[in-house]
Each structure stands twice: as C-alpha cells, then as structure tokens.
Amino acid sequence: MKEIKASMAGTVLQILVSEGEEINEGQVVVMLESMKMEIPIESGQIGKVASIKVEIGDFVNEDDELLVLE
C-alpha cells in the first residue's frame, strides 16, 4: 500500500483519477489549490488506485493522505 499525500496545505481543486484506475509514475493525480496557485500532485510510482480519501473542496494539511495505491 502506498499513500499519495498533500505536498502542502490547501484545498482539493480537482481529482483527476478514479478508483481502480491504473496510473503511471509522475502522473498528476490530484490538483490542489494553495496560495492561489494550482498545485499538481504527482504519483511517485506506478500503481492502481485503491481508494480516494478526499473530495473536491476539502481542506488538507501537508502530508494528509489524498489517495492510496494498491
């Protein structure tokens, strides 16, 4: 199991993948908004999305889980 975490505090702007989807290393999986900037969150590895832990509009703090890969 591998968690993809927020790189900084902000709100969830877009969720670009869905549960069960196969993703690549470096693929942008979530877009946060923070400090009025779009913050792309990339996956550090290849994997399959096991679960998505957030919804659009949620506040997340640095290191909060966004999604989990199998």
Binding site: S7, M8, S34, M35, M37, E38, I39, P40
Partner: peptide, 10 residues
C-alpha cells in the same frame, strides 16, 4: 520553481 508547491517559499 512554480511546478513544485507553486513556487511558494517554505
């Protein structure tokens, strides 16, 4: 580097 954390300073 705007690609990482929006280029914000930490």
């Amino acid at each position: 580097q705007p690609k990482v954390k929006g280029g914000v300073l930490f």
